[in-house]
């Protein structure tokens, strides 16, 4: 099967600080890849490059056969137009650490916005899809609540529904449980796990090691802007090869 996501030679700097120093990563349809590593290792930046919330200076990202964000034009690297980039962003779904729900819209409106404005769906069709996904994440009963009336875990579930309702090629999860109270973590992880078993292609940044071990088809350990070690979850957690990964795992909670 041909890969759905191919990242090659990706470099990214913030000013003079190089945060990604050449990343190569491929994912097939249905893969669940977890990015782990200490903060500052570049995991989140890598994720944000895939949906172009960050520009990158070198390398390429190919998603479902399309070059993301840039094109080669007569030997020159050109950034795509804002309109094309907006369209490509809709191919990825993103769930954020801070949920980022739109506070002035009800849960269902949050989910419908992208369907109506980006996918140009009619209201009824958008509503039907939004209801379906809100039901799937267990938020159907609360679809007319505003984000401010929901708990963190409920907000995150709505945010995941908002992203996945767009029918993306790949879902990106950026530390989706880090801002949650411990007792709310499991309800969100259950939703993510559910999507993983359904065969959704997912790239996730997480500090939940036990969860990463359970759901991932591959685990990638990043360190100082590079992929330090990668492999199947049993290898990464059961038999880490490098000293640095051993040290990282020793300090992590399970």
């Amino acid at each position: 099967m041909s890969p759905i996501l191919t990242i090659s030679g990706l470099h990214k700097s913030f000013g003079k600080v190089e945060v990604l120093k050449g990343i190569d990563l491929t994912m097939k349809q249905g893969d669940v890849v977890s990015l782990i590593g200490s903060s500052g290792s570049g995991k989140t930046t890598l994720l944000r490059c895939v949906n172009l919330l960050e520009d990158f200076e070198q390398g390429s990202i190919e998603l479902a056969g399309q070059s993301i964000g840039y094109k080669q034009d007569g030997g020159q690297r050109r950034r795509l137009s804002e309109r094309e980039i907006a369209r490509q962003r809709a191919m990825t779904g993103m769930a954020f650490q801070q949920f980022n729900l739109f506070p002035h819209m009800t849960a269902i409106r949050n989910v419908m916005l992208g369907l109506i404005k980006t996918k140009k769906m009619g209201k009824d069709e958008a509503r039907a899809i939004a209801e379906k996904w809100l039901d799937r994440v267990g938020m159907g009963q609360r679809r007319d609540h505003y984000p401010g009336q929901l708990s963190g875990g409920q907000q995150q579930r709505v945010a995941i529904a908002r992203a996945i309702a767009m029918n993306p090629q790949i879902m990106l999860f950026d530390e989706v449980t880090s801002a949650l109270d411990p007792e709310l973590v499991s309800e969100v992880l259950a939703v993510v796990r559910d999507l993983a078993t359904e065969g959704m292609t997912m790239l996730l940044v997480t500090h939940e090691m036990r969860f990463a071990r359970d759901v991932s088809t591959k685990v990638v350990f990043m360190h100082q802007g590079r992929i330090h070690e990668e492999g199947a979850p049993e290898e990464i957690f059961g038999a880490p090869k490098t000293e640095r990964l051993q040290g990282f795992l020793a300090k992590s909670e399970f």
Binding site: N51, A86, A90, T92, F102, R162
Partner: peptide
């Protein structure tokens, strides 16, 4: 994060401004 969330569902800058930023 509001702008990023709007972008992530494929909204253009104009749409982001009208539907997400301006109402807030």
């Amino acid at each position: 994060g509001q702008t990023e969330a709007a972008k992530s569902v494929g909204l253009t800058f104009g749409q982001t401004f009208v539907y997400v930023l301006l109402p807030q």
